[in-house]
Simulated scan of single mutants.
Amino acid sequence: MNQDAPLQPETSLSLALAVVASSSAPIVLLDGDLRLIAASTSFYRAFRIDAHKATARKFTRIGDGEWNVAQLSALLSATASGLAEVHGYEMDLRRPGQDTRRLVLDAQMLDYADTTQVRLLLTVTDVTDALVAAKVKDDLLREKAILLREVQHRVANSLQIIASILLQSARKVQSEETRNHLKSAHSRVMSIAAVQQQLAASSGGEVELRSYFEQLCRSLGASMIYDPEQLSIDVNVDKTLTEANISISLGLIVTELVINALKHAFPKHRKGKITVDYHATGKDWTLQVGDDGIGMPTGEIDVKPGLGTGIVEALSNQLAAQITVADAMPGTNVSITHQHHIAEVDRTAV
């Protein structure tokens, strides 16, 4: 017996019928006139069709005529003629007294031994439940986004109220030290409020650092610079978008460094400028806050530990970044640098 001999037509048809009948997916076998030769039990059950009444009938006439769709008939006829194949054809199946179902159909002409008999294999997928589930998911995500934006608006407004109270309190107290502490607290609160405002305005949960830093520095200047002609804050930031938690950390670092410069770099009403610079290349980034003030003290640098210093160090560690303090001659420049490959090595070594 020649093992390479093609199957006889009867054998091929029997095999096709066996495959169709045993399929767990809705499958229909049609002849060249689009009459139903066989269908899987899953097809009859899913679409409530009487198998005995459907066999040998035109596919468009099975059931209560719900399959009699002109465009589908034309596509199946073109497939039977070898002119086309049906891929991903979508239709709504409407039946009296039943919910409309969304179906996706694929059809192709079978290639087997009997070339005189045309056979079409039609598969039917009911995607109604999947579409409903997807719509429910989209609706939930949309509702969640609306609620999140509302929460962010409320949080930003609440923070601004707190900041306003702190600033009013700073103006009323007699102690200069207490006033400075209250102003610093006000600036820190405004830093977080600015992030919340940016998040509320964004659609993807990311913050554009340029507009965030500009807004933050405007707030710092308004609350801590008495004469804008005397002192100014310049912002030079690229168009980086970053995650909310990272932007909060960066904003707090900027706040602490700018406050520190405003407090110490320009004594006795000295004129000057503070510059905030941020640029990223891939996953690497550098944040710099510099000033043209009196500069670093000569000799041994005396770094007095305090809340601001602790915040900058803690946040830099959290961001896996290195702090560098340099004499800008004149002034001081503080760089916070994150190099992704070094951070990854450090992370895996822990």
Rank of each mutant, 00 (worst) to 15 (best):
T128I: 05
L241S: 10
S184D: 15
G293K: 04
T116I: 02
Q196D: 05
A201E: 06
S158N: 11
V127I: 11
D291H: 03
R210D: 09
L241F: 09
V258H: 01
I323T: 07
V173R: 00
Q196L: 03
L220C: 11
L262P: 13
L231R: 10
C217T: 12
A70V: 14
R210W: 04
I294V: 15
A349V: 11
G88R: 01
H52F: 12
Q322C: 02
F266W: 09
L17H: 01
G293Y: 04
D327P: 08
I323M: 11
K137I: 14
R61W: 02
R57M: 14
H264W: 13
E143H: 11
V20L: 05
A265T: 03
V207A: 06
R119A: 13
T123I: 10
V28I: 12
G331H: 00
A18Y: 02
V235Q: 04
E150R: 15
Q197R: 10
L220K: 09
W67Q: 06
Q174H: 13
V289L: 05
E143D: 14
I161D: 10
I342L: 13
F213H: 08
V303D: 10
E214Q: 12
S22V: 06
L121A: 10
D64A: 15
L83Q: 15
A5I: 02
T275E: 12
T178D: 10
L140R: 06
R119S: 14
Q198V: 05
L252M: 13
H52Q: 15
S81K: 13
T128L: 01
S191E: 03
Q108V: 00
G293P: 11
D114R: 01
T298N: 07
T240F: 00
G97W: 00
E143R: 14
E229F: 09
A38C: 09
D346K: 12
Q98N: 01
G272A: 10
V207T: 09
C217S: 08
D31R: 05
D111S: 11
R94A: 07
S223E: 06
E243Y: 08
N317M: 12
G205V: 06
D126S: 03
R218L: 12
A193L: 07
T255L: 03
G290K: 03
H269Q: 15
Q168M: 06
L159A: 06
A134C: 01
T309G: 08
A16N: 04
L241A: 11
A70H: 05
E313A: 15
I294T: 10
S184H: 11
S164D: 13
V235R: 04
A56N: 14
L319I: 00
T79L: 09
I49C: 08
